[in-house]
Structure formats: structure tokens, C-alpha cells
């Protein structure tokens, strides 16, 4: 019973969503938005599970003084601080328990929650995102090392695209006659991106689409059950 009821739900919901794709008549046209609404409501309640997991895991680390427990303490303090200032003075247009906090707003220039979000969380996120530039350089270095025919091909293609996207590319082959414009590096880079690159990406997307159809069908028909915990 514990396994069969979710399977019935999966079948009914799956079939309804498929039917709704082709039937614009009521009530089918409202099914998807209704189900999405249900999902949002369930997610809203499930957030509590996440918070409990976060508090329990970090407080366990602190209580047992496990290695690097200081990070857990910092995490919990940050969590509590954002929660408290959000509850007390609200955020953006929402009111808090103590109202708008106009005095604090005058001092900080924004509500405390928004101030912390803009001046602490966003810079931290941006810092992490900016690391991507260095990681791209190290990954590209490894990918472009001469090893095999494929890696050589990759390197030559990448060099053409990289140079073609800069002013150097335009400068290098600026003197080419009209009849050889295809070999002008920016044109060559555009060609690579527009044809071979797009073709490969679309092939991956088409095969992924087929995989999604197959995977969904297995779930709807109840053949695939491991997502429920069973086999």
C-alpha cells in the first residue's frame, strides 16, 4: 500500500499533465498550474524540514566539537541573524513585527535584512562566481594540451574561436580579399559556433529529450520505482 498509492498518484498526475498539453479545454488547461500551485505549497512546508536538518547537523558539530566546528557556529549565527532581522523589520515591501524600522533604515540606508543581503550575501556569491574565470583557465589549459587527434582538434578550434572573438582576430586577417572572406578569423569563429557547435548541442538536446520521454514513461507506468526508495 505504501508503494502502490504513490505509483497511482504518479500515473494519474503524469497522464493528466500529458493530456493537458493537447487539450486546451477546461478543466485540462488549468491542471498544470493547479499542480504547480500544489507543488509550491508542499515546497513551502518542506522548507521547515531543510531548516531543521541545517540546525540539527550544525548544532551536533558544535556540541561534539567535531573538526571545523567553528564554521558551523558561523553558519548558525548568520542564519539566526538573517532570520531575526527579517522577522523584526521585514524586507523590501513587507513589514516586520516591529514595523518598518525607519530609524535603522535611516542609519543603514535600507532595512537590515536588505542591507545584509546586498552587502554580505551578494558580494560573497559574486566572489565565488568570479572564481569561475580562474577555473576556466586551468580547465582550458588541461583540455588544450596536445595528447591526441581529438585534443589537437579541440585546441585549434578553441584558438580560432577565442581569437575570432577579439579585435586581434579581425586585425590578423583584415587584408584578405573578398573571395577569401570565409577564412577571415571572426567569420570562421562565427561559422564554428553557428554550424558544428549548434549541430552538436542540438544532437545532445534531442537525445536528452528522448531520454526524458523514456524516463517519464517508465515513471508513469510504474516500471521505474527507485525514486520512491524501492527497486
Amino acid at each position: 500500500m505504501k508503494r502502490n498509492i504513490p505509483l497511482v498518484f504518479a500515473f494519474v498526475a503524469g497522464m493528466l499533465v500529458i493530456l493537458a498539453e493537447f487539450i486546451p479545454h477546461r478543466p485540462f488547461n488549468q491542471i498544470v498550474s493547479t499542480l504547480e500551485g500544489w507543488f509550491m505549497i508542499i515546497s513551502g512546508f518542506a522548507i521547515l524540514l531543510g531548516q531543521i536538518s541545517l540546525i540539527r547537523m550544525n548544532s551536533n558539530k558544535i556540541r561534539h566539537k567535531l573538526p571545523d566546528w567553528q564554521y558551523s557556529l558561523a553558519g548558525l549565527i548568520s542564519f539566526a541573524l538573517m532570520l531575526i532581522v527579517g522577522l523584526l523589520w521585514g524586507m523590501q515591501e513587507t513589514h516586520g513585527i516591529l514595523g518598518e524600522g525607519l530609524g535603522i533604515q535611516a542609519a543603514l540606508g535600507a532595512k537590515p535584512f536588505d542591507y545584509l543581503f546586498t552587502n554580505a550575501l551578494l558580494p560573497l556569491s559574486s566572489t565565488l562566481f568570479s572564481l569561475l574565470a580562474f577555473f576556466i583557465a586551468s580547465a582550458a589549459y588541461r583540455a588544450f594540451i596536445f595528447r591526441s587527434f581529438e585534443s589537437n582538434l579541440l585546441m585549434i578550434t578553441a584558438v580560432i574561436v577565442i581569437i575570432g572573438r577579439t579585435s586581434l582576430g579581425s586585425m590578423l586577417t583584415a587584408g584578405l580579399p573578398e573571395s577569401l572572406q570565409f577564412w577571415h578569423i571572426p567569420n570562421l569563429a562565427d561559422f564554428i559556433m553557428e554550424y558544428p557547435n549548434s549541430a552538436a548541442q542540438r544532437a545532445i538536446l534531442v537525445s536528452a529529450g528522448l531520454g526524458i520521454v523514456g524516463s517519464s514513461l517508465r515513471i508513469i507506468l510504474g516500471i521505474e520505482r527507485s525514486y520512491l526508495g524501492g527497486d
Binding site: 508542499i42 515546497s43 518542506a46 522548507i47 524540514l49 531543510g50 536538518s53 526508495g229
Partner: peptide, 14 residues
């Protein structure tokens, strides 16, 4: 996400 958490817990426990 919390929903993924509860599903993952169930899957691993089973």
C-alpha cells in the same frame, strides 16, 4: 532543496 532532501533520505534509507 528540502523536497530533494526528504526524497534523497527515503531513497538512501531504502
Amino acid at each position: 532543496f528540502s523536497m530533494v532532501l526528504s526524497a534523497a533520505k527515503e531513497v538512501v534509507q531504502e
